[in-house]
Design a protein around this nucleic acid. Structure first.
Lengths: 330, 330
DNA sequence: AGAACAATTGACAACGTTGTCATCATTACT
DNA sequence: AGTAATGATGACAACGTTGTCAATTGTTCT
């Protein structure tokens, strides 16, 4: 493996200058920088993180605050965080408690770079206030809260919900039930908005009877769907705000003897592992949790004092599988 | 943080001797070793992996071969492997291809310590043969194959299946359906054996009609259960060889209008995330995948030439949740 | 006892990077 | 134009460990 000394020789500068370029320090002439970067590229240089961590006195720990009942969510996030940390030579410390004391003690540790908050903690006012006072950087996942504290990373939940609703409308569905997520989550609001806007834009009426309250759990999806299917004017499609509730909706449909997607279409949201583990496999919205968290780690890793309070919006995609089909004629 | 030099001062030896003790090298007098270990304990020493990795020329990469359709399985394993690697200062390289060429190229890399094989690759004869010839150590997960090649790590699937079957029998169930797993997996055989032995030991007859072939997928659990429930002599309980099939079984029960656990008890196996995401939550067998894989990493990390071909059997536990209840009187 | 050998321990370099400080080049100011 | 301030670069030490090899101690054999 090439070292910065090899690069230095090739570029005709001192190895310290190479180090400066690679660490994006100021006070390097653009021409010099370019020479170094070219040489690094040719030699296919990769930082030796062991050496860097040994010598560097920079903080290297990222504190991940996570408290989500869904184990698969927790796992995905943890995996992404770990991969991100590995990439940037950082260490991860994982926490499920987020009281003032815990956060303060983490923040006072000189090793700690900053925090990553996952929903619903991302929108917890107390935590946000505590962190703001402590002057440690933090990144909030899955929220685009207007209040500009810290950096936020999310997808455009509203647009995604809009698109998947429009997809159902395109299949001929006119009565589309909606199962809301847990009230503590900001995504709950945005997904509902997207659904409502899509109906409106396509000349359909928004009926409150077709909108039920869930909490992101399988059981709530089951119960909500039972309620929706007992309406006199039954929906021909159901939009569950996440995949677990969609799985519950599937079970409720089976219970009623409705075939999916023949008699009822069901869509979820997230493209979590459950979406493929279920029969029929769910049409859903893919958001890459691991991308999200890797981005969060990257932001903290490359933190400069100037780039605070941005909002990063990542891509999403409709995933069409087997749980959706044309609406039945009524 | 204390260094080996601090320990050396406290123990009155040279820092090189401390290094030797901590690396479990030979040729250290027992008394010296003890002095060093005591000093290390008092100072609460922790190895600086950055420094170690920088200087050490030992290989540091573990190749993980994984090809499992279940995303949640893949995630758990990857997470455990990453945590294990972090703990031992190693790097993980992940592979879903396992043809001869891929394996050979990984093995020829001097950086590679060894391989971890996950089911069903753990029992793939071709792979095992290739690896044996390449003389790189490997650890096989989820198998206790009698053929003693490489180290194997597993739980006692047979005993676990026995116990959960006996639990059902204890609830009064006399007709217990069984859904087999995918044929490529060795666990499939052992879980079936445990089921059969429990029936036999409790004076129940083993009926082939009550045993159906699945493949670990939700869909196969659904179909198998439908078949079992259409028998003239219906089972009052169903033992699915994993949680995904148990989830499918739940859906089939709903479809038939059977309440779980009132009219039908269902048990799964693995205690995967799905077991809690489903309603009612599944009674199942917990096996800690992450423990399993961490152990695998540890074995490779501390590899000595002498301890090959062992079989490590980890603990399991019955997890009683809401999908099981007393048998209906017939 | 003395020689030969093995076991045990230590001195010191080296890994590839960042931190500190010194030096040289350039710009800004009087 | 001369001086001060700033920008750009370099020389070298240092991080905490392992690798190499030499020095010391203990053991075995003649």
């Amino acid at each position: 493996m090439p070292t910065i000394i090899d690069i230095a020789k090739k570029a005709g500068v001192s190895f310290k200058t190479v180090s400066r370029v690679l660490n994006e320090e100021v006070n390097v002439r653009p021409a010099t920088r370019q020479k170094v970067l070219d040489a690094a590229k040719i030699l296919n240089y990769r930082t030796n993180t062991a050496a860097r961590n040994l010598r560097s006195k920079r903080p290297k720990v990222i504190a991940l605050l996570i408290n989500n009942p869904s184990q698969s969510y927790t796992q995905s996030v943890q995996l992404g965080a770990l991969l991100g940390c590995q990439k940037h030579g950082l260490y991860l410390s994982l926490h499920t408690k987020y009281d003032k004391k815990t956060i303060a003690s983490l923040a006072s540790n000189a090793e700690t770079i900053g925090f990553i908050l996952t929903p619903p903690i991302s929108d917890n006012e107390k935590v946000l206030e505590t962190l703001s006072n402590l002057r440690k950087p933090f990144v909030r996942l899955g929220t685009e809260h207007s209040k500009a504290i810290g950096t936020s990373i999310c997808i455009d939940d509203r647009q995604a919900a809009y698109k998947i609703t429009e997809y159902l409308i395109g299949l001929g569905h006119k009565h589309i039930g909606f199962i809301k997520g847990h009230v503590d989550y900001q995504t709950t609001t945005h997904r509902l908005l997207g659904y409502q806007e899509a109906l409106e834009a396509n000349g359909l009426i928004i009926t409150n009877k077709l909108i039920t309250q869930g909490d992101f759990s399988y059981a709530s999806g089951l119960v909500s769907t039972e309620r929706l299917l007992s309406l006199t004017k039954k929906p021909t499609a159901i939009f569950a705000s996440n995949d677990e509730m969609a799985a519950g909706a599937l079970a409720a449909a089976y219970k009623k003897g409705l075939r999916v997607p023949d008699s009822l279409s069901i869509v979820g949201f997230d493209d979590s592992p459950i979406a493929m583990a279920v029969y029929p496999q769910l049409t859903t919205v893919r958001q890459s949790l691991s991308d999200m968290i890797e981005k969060a780690v990257e932001i903290l890793a490359k933190l400069q004092t100037d780039n605070k309070n941005q909002i990063v919006i990542l891509d999403h995609a409709l995933v069409l599988r087997d749980s959706t089909g044309p609406a039945l004629d009524t």
